[in-house]
């Protein structure tokens, strides 16, 4: 398994190269001039030209790419045009919020998605199933920004239980109590994905229930809950594990909206703002990090898959 993981990590290299080229080209396709944006309306053409030269943006595109790539390979993602500090530092600032948000979101997805899916499958066709499946459908269709705004209205404005926006870093306040700032955003982000997992868990439980080996388990005289947990759920998990990879991909894009709604200083909002500022190095850096993360998560999902299903051999 270790050998497989290493080989998979090696295949990341060409994928990353291709991704970096695409990212670089697309970023430079965004119309607008960073120097002009940076200097504001009062800048003279001479000032803009001089800043453009300073930033190296007057070079041919392939030279810019090779320079950037050379630096990236040395772990240097460049300097932010807007902040005038290294891109790695800009990303590190947003990472705390985004990582904690992602983790809390995954916790919500697991604690809501899996048990409710199991219950819906166990009570198939009853009102329990109808309520949970209907609820899942509802949450899957509600747009993230709408749900976020309503949660703010209920829990922050009306009830006053939870903060409506922002997130102070743990490094500054030194307490995990900050996590309550992320309760609403993470639930907002989790809702549509948890709904998907509910439906998936339910469907795969029902699929597995029809398999012959479940009848064998019942023929052993096992109590129904043991059959459900040890035999049905354990097999249903194989399909669900694969879905967590997709869920992560969805989180990355949905986080942009959620971080904006809740004014969270995370990576998602950073990307949006950097695009508005034409801050090429930051956009490129963040997207590259997301691509790496995405590929690593997919590798982890494949490894988990092989652990869950002995028929899958990693070669």
């Amino acid at each position: 398994m270790l050998g497989y993981a290493l080989r998979r990590l090696l295949t990341l290299v060409p994928t990353l190269l291709a991704a970096s080229l695409l990212v670089f080209l697309f970023v430079h396709l965004i119309p607008g001039d960073p120097a002009a944006v940076l200097l504001g309306d009062s800048a003279t053409p001479e000032e803009i030209a001089s800043l453009t030269r300073e930033l190296g943006l007057d070079q041919p595109l392939y030279t810019q790419y090779l320079l950037w790539l050379g630096n990236v390979l040395q772990g240097d993602l460049g300097t932010s045009i807007f902040f005038r500090i290294p891109v790695t530092a800009v990303i590190a600032d947003g990472a705390e919020t985004s990582i904690l948000l992602a983790l809390m979101t995954m916790v919500w997805i697991v604690i809501l998605g899996v048990p409710i899916g199991v219950v819906a499958a166990s009570y198939r066709g009853t009102w329990v199933d109808q309520v949970t499946s209907g609820g899942a459908m509802l949450f899957a269709s509600v747009p993230t920004f709408w749900l976020g705004l309503y949660l703010i209205l209920i829990f922050s404005v009306t009830l006053g239980w939870l903060p409506s926006s922002g997130y102070p870093s743990i490094r500054d306040t030194g307490g995990l109590a900050n996590l309550r700032y992320l309760l609403l955003p993470s639930f907002t982000l989790a809702a549509p994905n948890a709904a998907l997992i509910i439906r998936l868990v339910r469907a795969s439980m029902l699929d597995v229930q029809r398999e012959d080996h479940v009848r064998t388990a019942r023929a052993k005289g096992l109590a129904p809950w043991k059959v459900s947990v040890k035999h049905v759920f354990r097999n249903a998990l194989i399909a669900v594990a694969a879905a967590f990879g997709f869920t992560f991909a969805a989180l990355v894009s949905e986080a942009v909206v959620t971080e904006t709604v809740f004014s969270l200083p995370g990576i998602g909002r950073l990307v949006v703002q950097s695009i508005l500022r034409r801050d090429y190095p930051v956009i490129q850096g963040v997207i590259l990090v997301i691509v790496v993360l995405y590929m690593v998560i997919n590798l982890l999902v494949d490894l988990a898959y092989a652990r869950l299903d002995p028929r899958v051999s990693l070669k």
Binding site: H213, R215, D309, R311
Partner: peptide, 11 residues
């Protein structure tokens, strides 16, 4: 049962 191929739990 009839189907030994599928009557055992694969995991």
């Amino acid at each position: 049962f009839q189907e030994p191929m599928t009557s055992l739990n694969p995991v």
